[in-house]
Amino acid sequence: MNKNEKETDWLKLLFSRLPEEDLNASFCNDTMKRILKEAARKKRRNEFMGLAAVSLASLAIMGIAAGAIFYAGIPRIEWRMPDLPSLPFYLYIGVLSLLLLGMDFLLRRAYRKRHPL
């Protein structure tokens, strides 16, 4: 054994005699609680970042679409009102039906008030 090895062994022996210090019994539990909290916070932050990214991307797409339609005129959309000669008649029938339904509702309510079950 040379001089260096002798010294190393001697020091190693001395260091091995240094007193040990025990870790608090609740250390792992306490740390895991902090870790789980941190994981939940990380998850929430990731979810928020994901939502923010999707929202931003959607807004950007909507902005580009609006710009393309209203300013650049891409694609060209032409709106034509269909020719409907019988539209006034159908409107008259619709309004009449709504009126009759309304009257039916009011009369039934009045009847129930007068003849309760």
Partner: peptide, 20 residues
């Protein structure tokens, strides 16, 4: 995340002793 407990269990004593 619960798997972290195994790493904690494995290294906490050594790391604590060194820091102490």
């Amino acid at each position: 995340t619960t798997c972290f407990a195994c790493l904690l269990d494995r290294y906490s004593r050594q790391v604590h002793l060194l820091i102490f």
